[in-house]
Design a protein around this nucleic acid. Structure first.
Length: 730
DNA sequence: AGCACGCCGACT
DNA sequence: GTCGGCGTGCTC
């Protein structure tokens, strides 16, 4: 309308006195004087009822992590319902007070969160530019969950929603969704009877209860069906269920088990590798209530299942359960939040047991579901170890890199089935370490890792490419090297030569085999890529165990055990001749836990140790990293809870550690960039530790400080990244 | 990130 | 006086 309309909210100050205008505006805002009627820039006709839309603008930056009010034009009244996607003008361009007729900034996406009668914003409201579609994709439960996740991880709501709501696809949205199927009958507990409280758990679900359990699954392939039965029990109570697994292959197993138990079309498979259209179609079928059971990888943790009765996470120690986009939520934690918020059942299952899972049991939040020792003995293979002392006695081992015991077990196993060989890393190039003290061999120019290219024995730096002639160990003066980790292909070649009559298959990152037949074959695999063998493997060799355990990581032991058990669980039971050989010191805790097949005992002991040392998850931690000065600045500005303890900062490798999933932890726009450029600056990281119970306060403090910094517009090179519960803390 | 507003120095 | 540099702060 007239220029007056767009001039300002207060209406009292004169145009010629901008300072006063600003003061008046400020005063009005502080007094929180609600405007009787919202005005728009152009004075367009507004919706008669609830003419104000509260909108979450889709920008991840923390200082915009709040709602903005927009006017609802009359013509959008019907479709502008809570939960729909909208487009709005957003940006400073709209505040041209003198001219008062300019449109706002650029069009950006957002979610309409709520319709209200009045705005407490004192200026004139811009109108919603567009309702993208009438589909209410962001319901109150999902919004509440996303908010809780954002708070927990000191991230922004928009960042979480990016993970939680899949991109829209018009054709998928237009398609009709089928009718919901009636609830199935409750399942027979069947193999759940092998566990102490398994039957009880299923009955509780079927009766509409909300049991919470940490379930240590017996080795073998039954776990997928067992999960499917828990889902069936939940559906029988008239509620829905979500199952989150770490990767596509386990998703396919649960998918198949659900299909067999429920029939087709009763559940949705939500995985990242499906196309956008399919993904959105399945997601919509869930949101619309046509499908009540979901299995998928980590994004499925946000699936908008109606009337949720059960959430399941399988193998929570797998790193894939940690999202690699800000704010890096972890499936286990998100499902815990969901179980608490939605008052639904919770099942954390795996062949092994993380420290976090043990803590859920110890705190009483979840009950343990474990099998008795006799059941374990009946299901698990025999585990034998090859330690350093054995290797020292074993001349043949050093030459062939295959200890005599491993050789014998492989040979015997190959008589009646496939033999799995687990090698810790893919690729052909082995990294080198001092044969005496095991110090990694590093380039003397750039400290990069020395590698043995081609079999010629020549050493070359993996970073700068310089050849290394006369290497000697800077630690102990030794001059002999050993291969620290030998890749799958090379091992496959060696084994192929050792057993010329047997086919050798490899499964690794480049090519993952799903299953192998039950006939004699050597199956060389990296951890997590092990194919399932028909009838189980006759034997498994777990090589280079010391390399797995040698990582300077809080989880090194737990990870090694998890990977070993992940392979050993595919081996036939001891009664059926199944044998596992692990090349690692038998005195080490994870090795003993493998031999005794006691992952829970291992986790409980680790938990006690972490409690004693004040390590996570018993205390909560956050990592703040960035250029040295930025970290110091941030630490000076943040108002930490009184019980917080700052460790460091200490220098760390820069922001582009390959494969670490490092990204901007908080802040940044909508575009996901692949990797930050390598900076020449010295990067540092501080850890902040708080005792149990202060995690939320810590996250809140970090978020406030980060928001304040980002609002000031600190330059790109002076930003810090915040990560709650960092996993890579030595 | 982008843009306007405001304060301060140089110039018609 | 007025133009335009950049430093701050806001985005309904």
């Amino acid at each position: 309308m007239s220029s007056e309309d767009g001039t300002r909210g207060g209406g009292a100050a004169g145009d010629g006195e901008p300072e006063q205008l600003a003061l008046v505006r400020e005063a009005v805002r502080k007094a929180k004087v609600p405007r009787a009627k919202p005005r728009t820039w152009r004075g367009a006709a507004l919706a008669k009822e609830l003419p104000v839309a509260r909108v979450l603008v889709d920008k991840g930056v923390l200082h915009l992590d709040r709602y903005f009010d927009y006017a609802v034009p009359e013509e959008l009244d019907a479709v502008a319902q809570p939960g729909v996607r909208v487009r709005v003008r957003f940006g400073a361009g709209g505040r041209n007070v003198r001219e008062g007729r300019r449109e706002g900034g650029s069009l950006i996406d957002g979610f309409l969160v709520e319709r209200v009668a009045e705005s407490d914003y004192s200026g004139p409201l811009a109108a919603l530019a567009q309702v993208v579609s009438p589909e209410p994709v962001l319901g109150p439960e999902l919004l509440g969950l996303a908010r809780a996740v954002a708070d927990r991880y000191a991230g922004s709501l928009a960042d979480v929603l990016q993970l939680a709501v899949p991109p829209r696809h018009g054709r998928a949205e237009a398609a009709q969704t089928g009718e919901p199927a009636p609830p199935p009958v409750a399942p027979e507990p069947r193999s759940w009877l092998r566990y102490g409280r398994g039957e009880e758990f299923l009955r509780a679900l079927a009766a509409g209860g909300t049991p919470r359990a940490v379930w240590t699954a017996l080795p073998g392939p039954e776990w997928a069906e067992e999960i499917a039965r828990a889902v069936q029990a939940t559906l029988a109570s008239g509620r829905g269920a979500i199952v989150v697994v770490p990767a596509g292959r386990p998703a396919a197993r649960v998918d198949e088990a659900l299909g067999q138990l429920l029939g087709e079309g009763r559940h949705a498979l939500l995985t990242a590798d499906a196309g956008q259209e399919k993904r959105y179609r399945e997601w919509l079928a869930v949101r619309r209530g046509a499908v009540r059971a979901v299995v998928g990888t980590r994004a499925a943790m946000f699936a908008p299942v109606r009337d949720l009765g059960l959430v399941v996470v399988w193998d929570d120690g797998d790193a894939s359960h940690s999202d690699d986009n800000a704010p890096f939520p972890h499936v286990r934690e998100v499902l815990e939040l969901r179980a608490s918020r939605d008052k639904c059942g919770f099942l954390l299952g795996g062949w092994t047991c993380t420290v976090e899972a043990a803590q859920l049991v110890e705190s009483g939040w979840a009950a343990p579901i474990v099998a008795g020792r006799e059941q374990v003995r009946a299901a698990a293979p025999l585990v034998r170890t090859v330690g350093d002392a054995d290797l020292a006695r074993d001349e043949a081992a050093r030459a062939a890199r295959l200890p005599s015991l491993a050789w014998q077990v492989a040979r015997d196993g190959l008589r009646d089935g496939p033999v799995l060989v687990q090698v810790p890393r893919r690729g052909y190039v082995p990294r080198m370490a001092c044969a005496r003290c095991r110090e990694p061999a590093r380039c003397r120019h750039c400290a990069g890792p020395l590698e043995a290219r081609d079999g010629t024995g020549a050493l070359r730096c993996g970073w700068c490419g310089r050849e290394e002639g006369g290497w000697h160990c800077p630690e102990c003066g030794g001059h002999r090297l050993r291969a620290q980790v030998v890749g799958a292909r090379r091992t496959a070649e060696e084994l192929g030569r050792a057993f010329p009559a047997v086919p050798v298959r490899t499964s690794g990152r480049e090519q993952v085999l799903d299953t192998v037949p039950g006939t004699p074959a050597l199956v060389v695999s990296t951890p997590g890529a092990e194919p399932v063998a028909e009838g189980g493997y006759a034997a498994a060799l777990l090589l280079d165990g010391w390399a797995m355990l040698g990582r300077p990581d809080l989880r090194a032991g737990e990870d090694a055990l998890r990977r070993w058990i992940g392979a050993a669980a595919l081996v036939r039971s001891q009664g059926a001749g199944g044998t596992v050989v692990v090349v690692a010191e038998p005195t080490l805790r994870p090795v003993q836990a493998l031999v005794r097949w006691d992952p829970v005992g291992h986790a409980v002991r680790e938990l006690a140790e972490r409690a004693e040392l004040g390590f996570p998850p018993v205390s909560r931690m956050a990592a703040v990293s960035g250029p040295a000065e930025a970290v110091v600045d941030f630490l000076a500005a943040v108002e930490l809870p009184p019980d917080a303890e700052v460790l460091g900062p200490v220098p760390v490798a820069g922001p582009t550690v390959p494969g670490s999933g490092a990204g901007p932890a908080a802040g940044g726009g909508r575009t996901r960039r692949p990797a930050a450029p390598v900076t020449a600056e010295q990067w540092e990281r501080a850890l902040i530790r708080v005792p149990p119970g202060s995690g939320a306060a810590l996250a809140g403090a970090l978020k406030r400080a980060q928001a304040a910094r980002m609002a000031r517009g600190v330059p790109e090179g002076a930003r810090v990244r915040i990560r709650m519960d960092p996993s890579d803390i030595g």
